[in-house]
Simulated scan of single mutants.
Amino acid sequence: MGVRTGGAARTVWAAALAGALLGPLALGGCGLTSGSPMVDDVVPGSVGQGLPLKGADLTVTSKNFSENIILGQIMGLAFKAAGASVLDRTNIQGSIGAREAVKTGGADGMYEYTGTAWITYLGHDRPITDPREQWRAVAEADARNGITWLAPAALNNTYALALNRANEKKYGTKTLSDVAALSKSDPSAVSLCVESEFAARNDGLPGMAKAYGMNVPASRIQKMDGGIIYTQVSGGGSCTFGEVFTTDGRIKAMNLAVMADDKHFFPNYNAAPEINAKAMKKYPAIKDVLDPITAKLTNDVARELNAKVDVDGEDPHDVAKDWLIKEGFIKKG
Rank of each mutant, 00 (worst) to 15 (best):
A98P: 06
V86D: 06
F266D: 12
A162F: 09
G48D: 09
L163P: 13
N156S: 13
V233D: 13
N255E: 15
P292R: 01
L290H: 08
V102E: 01
W135V: 05
R89T: 07
E112T: 04
S234A: 15
K54T: 06
V12W: 02
K296R: 11
P206D: 00
A181N: 13
I330T: 05
P127E: 01
D88N: 10
A98Y: 05
A181H: 10
A81R: 11
C239K: 06
D291S: 15
E133T: 10
V311M: 02
R136G: 01
K287S: 11
G226R: 08
P284G: 04
A271N: 12
A151M: 02
V12D: 11
Y269T: 11
E100G: 01
A56G: 15
D186R: 12
K103W: 00
L32E: 14
A295R: 12
I119C: 04
T11S: 14
N255F: 00
S95F: 11
G328Q: 04
D108N: 05
A295V: 03
K282W: 00
D225F: 10
V258T: 12
V311G: 08
G55V: 01
A84E: 09
G31T: 04
Q134G: 11
V194W: 06
H124P: 09
T129V: 10
G97Y: 05
G94P: 07
I96F: 04
E100L: 11
S238H: 03
A307T: 03
A295I: 02
T59H: 07
G29T: 08
S188W: 00
